[in-house]
Design a protein around this nucleic acid. Sequence first.
RNA 1: GUGGCUAUGGUAUAAUGGUUAUUACUCUGGUUUGUGGUACCGGCAAUACGGGUUCAAUUCCCGUUAGCCACCCCA
Length: 474
Amino acid sequence: MPRKKSTTKKQPQKKVQAKKATTKKKVVKKVDLKNVDPKKEKKKTKGPVYTTLRGMKDILPKEGVMWQHLYHTAEDIAGAYGFSYIETPILEQASLFVRSIGKGTDVVDKEMYIFEDKDGSKVCLRPEVTASIARSYINHGMHTFPQPVKVWYWGQMFRHDRPQAGRYRQFHQFGCETFGIQSPVVDAELIAVAYNMLRDLGIETTVKINSIGTPEDRENYIVELVGYLRSKRSYLSDESKKRINKNPLRVLDSKHEQDKAVMEEAPQILDWLSDKSRGFFMSVLEYLDEAGVPYVLTPTLVRGLDYYTDTVFELYTEDDEGSQSALGGGGRYNGLVGQLGGEETPGSGFSLGIERVANILKKQKEELEKQEDYKPEKPGGIFFAQLGEQACKRSLHLIEELRRSGLRVYHNLAKSSLKAQLETADKLGVSNTLILGQKEVQDGTILIRNMESGIQEVVDQKKIVNTVQKLLAK
RNA sequence: GUGGCUAUGGUAUAAUGGUUAUUACUCUGGUUUGUGGUACCGGCAAUACGGGUUCAAUUCCCGUUAGCCACCCCA
């Protein structure tokens, strides 16, 4: 980023030589230096330093492989479970989220990127995508589609939170939503997708699960809970005292030791569920057992968004070395579509935080690389080196031919020396390099060099595709 | 949003109130204009930003910004 020409730095040796030159020159030099004033110069030549905004980050080519791997894993697993891809705009009407997620939640009150559009309407960068998809469901009359409507998504979300490791202002989520069916199997399937995806990636997670029932169940429970909390008020932390009125459910998962003690005796929401909700929840658990997804019943789990009903869950990593250990979460939202103006439609979904998953994978990879016998994977391709103008021209044809037959061809046509090209080939780690020189162009042949053994073979250019394909198939 | 810790080339680091800021990796050029992975030689590249104290600040102090950690919350 700091790009500048250093006019002041010189080689020691050169300086010694300079000293031997006339003193006049020296004086001139000194004056020059004064006029230049490295500090001011720096400012001038540096110009503005552009960086990413706070809490945003670049995904660099080096990480690209892993991100694509993540994306494809998501794509594969969602597809395997019968979900179709959906994409909604990143920018939405602000009220969509206010209405669905709910006033009073942190996400809406503090964390939304919200601003006025040119026509004065309030728009915002989506903090999550479930509401957008529900909106889309209504807009496009998806209730006329065969139910359930199962969709998966992958995209950027924005929350103006204070950044921390594993917490960014722009981040990616992968998730699935199932609309139109009120069945415990749906919830179990969604949890299984999330759990299995992480397992496929080599990440063991704990599924924490709870049910918060219907809004009525919750109201009744909150009355009871508030009563209990008031009676224990003096034992609670200051923060929790405040929350008794503002958001009593949040006291449940407080991390203060003193609160935890109080919570042990607290009334549990599960006892306040209607028979219907309780039966539903039990059924979800049974399906999870069948699906082989281990879970931990967590009565203190409540989620931060208003639209949840009944099942709620979160996925935690086992190895939560600091940072953010919640990799994802979700739940049922039977009221959401109705709330947004559609017909009452049940729904359920989950989302995973890709940056958090990526962080764990990165750590795992670093561990792996520490091991002595670690060998980086070779790229599945071949390097094409060329010498001389004629060869360079000819190589364009050959590269195209190879590419058309589905081969990946690396090259650096801008370099002329074979040495430099082989160096590049070596850095890429390819197993073979094709070498085309003046001689070969005239003979209609080409060299294939095995990068490991250094053995080179002469091949007819006509047979090149075939030969390379065979080589790479090994 | 609250509190704490941190800030040296692209990365990882050393050092210092005083002339040219250490080293390694990376990148780049060469030794070798038809042969890489080793070796040798060269080059690019940094004290986050702004202010203060001082004869002198990269070093001490303050502010800003960013990162990390805890809270809050969540993915």
